[in-house]
Design a protein around this nucleic acid. Structure first.
Lengths: 230, 230
DNA sequence: TTTAATAAGTGTCTATTTTACACTTATTTT
DNA sequence: AAAATAAGTGTAAAATAGACACTTATTAAA
């Protein structure tokens, strides 16, 4: 064989589905939409769409997310390619899943126009179309893994946040209670937070100091990675 | 929109490329082939092929690996989908990379018929076609990550092996020297090895005890995971 | 204005894990 | 019999992780 004939090869539809993690005072959630088209019209599903010829998968994921939710400038990462032959009953489709992290409050305004979308707590995710529940499961596992090896939070928390919020974020992700003092000591040892003068007075009578991430140090740690045993 | 017209969507060629890691007395290597077809005939490349309609990606990876190398019953894992628009100059192609782990000696006989294939030490990987060097880089990073969070070695070592071989494997993967005593202590604490009566007398005058993996405990640890700081 | 209620904030001690480090042993070849 | 080779072995110090309880600032209610 001298020339491989690409034309003889099967082509497939390539979809992108997005697992959008959000965080608010109730904990970690994912964003789902009620499908308004067949197949599986009326069922809950991840946000998704098809890749176009002139874009790579990252771009497709960003476009689809923005188009369906209005969200922009969102952190996204590729998760996994799902390829079971009959995963989409209508036509052979391979789906590359991406996951995104956002702070729900910060992006609330973007999402207001989305009446068919809804946030679901991780523990209350309904039955989804196709293999979307599997995608969600895998995304949670990945997020958990990430939480223990690199700083996350930057994307999921508002610019200013309290230690308690950060702890609650980690508790949601890891699905377990953490000790307040140990958590603070650990986080402080990472040296990626800046303590502000300002206090958040809405959550308690005493008020809680606000922090923000030191972006430079945050991204440095992101590259290095660490082992965060919690 | 009530019915989404799948037919309007772009279809693409979906390729699978395999990063095959092998281990022998010289260390960790990857298997490359010299392409005998266009484009890029004569260049070094990963083993790859196209996915067919009636198979999922895992199956495609297994088929391609077996077809091109004769290897079978090989551990493989999906790595990442590479989708840069012009990654393949001939036609728009998305490639899902898989990586495989094998013990070179054990599979030598399978590979004998492959005169266009060659093992390259990780440090001497030549320039490859398309984005294959990027794939290799990402696969090494993944392998390194895996080595620290779950037991590997089962696939890369012969059935019976010495502690030194296991240590050399980890040294190759992590690309650093490890302390002999600390390594043994750590490995023993995992409780996944069975020490045999038998010694390997080929490597030293004193001989070295052979070990084998306790499959049950090995797979149990694989599910649990661990933190292996080396 | 005093009291009660709420969540924030703070430090130490113990257990576990990780790291550093050097000599003896079994065997073969000379 | 001596020399050479790689295997095999343990302990102490340092770093990290985990357990644990009281005080403080503030507001709302009495």
């Amino acid at each position: 064989m001298v020339l491989k004939d690409y034309n003889k090869e099967d082509k497939v539809l390539l979809a992108v589905d997005c697992i959008i993690f959000g965080f608010d005072e109730e904990g970690l959630k994912i964003l789902l939409i009620k499908r308004d088209f067949e197949p599986k019209k009326g069922c809950w599903s991840l946000i998704g769409g098809f890749q176009k010829k002139d874009e790579n998968l990252d771009q497709a994921a960003i476009r689809i997310l923005n188009h369906l939710t209005g969200l922009h400038d969102i952190y996204m990462d590729q998760l996994y390619a799902f390829s079971k032959v009959d995963r989409d009953p209508k036509e052979r489709t391979i789906s590359v899943a991406y996951y995104a992290l956002i702070d729900i409050a910060t992006h609330d305004s973007d999402l207001i126009r989305l009446d068919s979308a809804q946030w679901f707590s991780l523990k209350k995710v309904p039955s989804l179309i196709f293999d979307h529940n599997l995608m969600v499961k895998k995304a949670i596992a990945r997020l958990r893994q990430s939480a223990m090896t690199k700083p996350i939070g930057f994307e999921l928390l508002p610019e200013k946040f309290t230690m308690r919020q950060l702890q609650q974020l980690y508790e949601s992700i890891l699905n377990k209670k953490l000790d307040k003092r140990n958590f603070i000591n650990k986080v402080n040892s990472l040296d990626i937070l800046i303590k502000l003068e300002e206090k958040d007075m809405t959550v308690s009578r005493k008020g809680a100091y606000l922090y923000r991430f030191d972006k430079d140090k945050y991204y440095k740690k992101l590259l290095e990675g660490f082992s965060f045993k919690l």
